[in-house]
């Protein structure tokens, strides 16, 4: 079943490059006629380098940014023009995990207040009930009650990421959009974070839209993957297949750029046994 669908989405920003007195002209499209669907229970990888339009696409799917043209469909209904009140109910079904959790927290809020924000917005008025659900959610991401009163700056990078995930799942959504969720994490924490996300997906029946520039994870983490370049999707395939038989030269270039896992597999060095 299609949960979330982009139909011919296009976003054009005004080009301000013409100086303070120039007219603002439409620039090149950041997202150019993209159609994409996220099915229930799958992980869809959206792969591309910075500036390819993948974050803009994600924001349009979440209705955080209006598209220039095209439609956004949630469970078959066109939500493109829904107003705030109606949108709120859909918002609770799809949530965002940020690349840098630290930046996505108000620095003066405690963990409890951060995770409580979606609950308040969803109309959970009783503080006791909110706390109960927050504790339950923190537990599911591996954090205990001791963290409730911490400020973001008092958490480690891995803990911040967990709080970010907790905020996203506290309303038990169906869809998580993960925007480079590992890239701001230390190496040793990435594997844990990946396992946590995989576990939560199973446990809560989530579907993921996984935005990344790192092709090396795609094979294991994604059911399907779409490669985006300059606002367009250039290739779309099942995850494992993309790793092995990608056809588009751009995808091949990305694959060739993945650093070696072992010094014996060096790709760039001309003289591999150089001493």
């Amino acid at each position: 079943m299609k949960l979330l669908e982009a139909v011919d989405l296009t976003k054009v920003y005004a080009d301000r490059a013409s100086g303070p007195f120039g007219r603002s002209r439409p620039g090149p499209p950041a997202v150019d006629g993209v159609s994409l669907e996220l099915r229930r229970g799958e992980t869809l990888g959206l792969i591309g380098e910075s500036g390819c339009g993948k974050s803009t696409l994600a924001r349009m799917l979440l209705r955080l940014e209006p598209p220039t043209s095209g439609r956004v469909l949630y469970r078959g209904s066109d939500i493109t023009d829904w107003k705030f009140g109606r949108m709120r109910r859909v918002r609770s079904r799809m949530q965002l995990v940020f690349q840098s959790s630290a930046a996505s927290f108000n620095p003066s809020f405690t963990v409890e207040r951060i995770v409580a924000e979606p609950l308040r917005n969803a109309g959970v008025k009783s503080a006791a009930e909110r706390r109960l659900r927050i504790l339950e959610t923190l537990e599911s991401v591996g954090l205990g009650a001791a963290y409730l009163d911490r400020l973001p700056a008092e958490l480690s990078g891995g803990q911040q990421q967990r709080v970010g995930i907790a905020r996203a799942i506290v309303l038990r959504p169906e869809i998580l959009i993960l925007d480079e969720p590992f890239s701001s994490l230390d190496f040793s924490l990435r594997r844990q974070a990946m396992e946590l996300l995989a576990g939560l997906k199973e446990q809560l029946g989530l579907s993921y839209l996984f935005i990344t520039h790192d092709l090396s994870i795609v094979g294991r983490f994604c059911d399907r993957a779409a490669v985006m370049r300059r606002g367009r999707i250039v290739e779309q395939r099942p995850g494992a297949e993309l790793m092995n038989e990608a056809s588009h030269p751009y995808t091949r270039m990305l694959l060739d750029s993945i650093p070696a896992r072992h010094p014996a597999d060096r790709t760039y060095r001309l003289d591999r046994t150089y001493k």
Partner: peptide
């Protein structure tokens, strides 16, 4: 290689190490 520069490469990325380091 060409200019005989010695590099102290500071990184957290083992992929970069595998590619480049002696």
């Amino acid at each position: 290689r060409e200019e005989d520069v010695g590099i102290l490469l500071i990184t957290h990325d083992l992929g970069v190490v595998a590619e480049l380091a002696d």
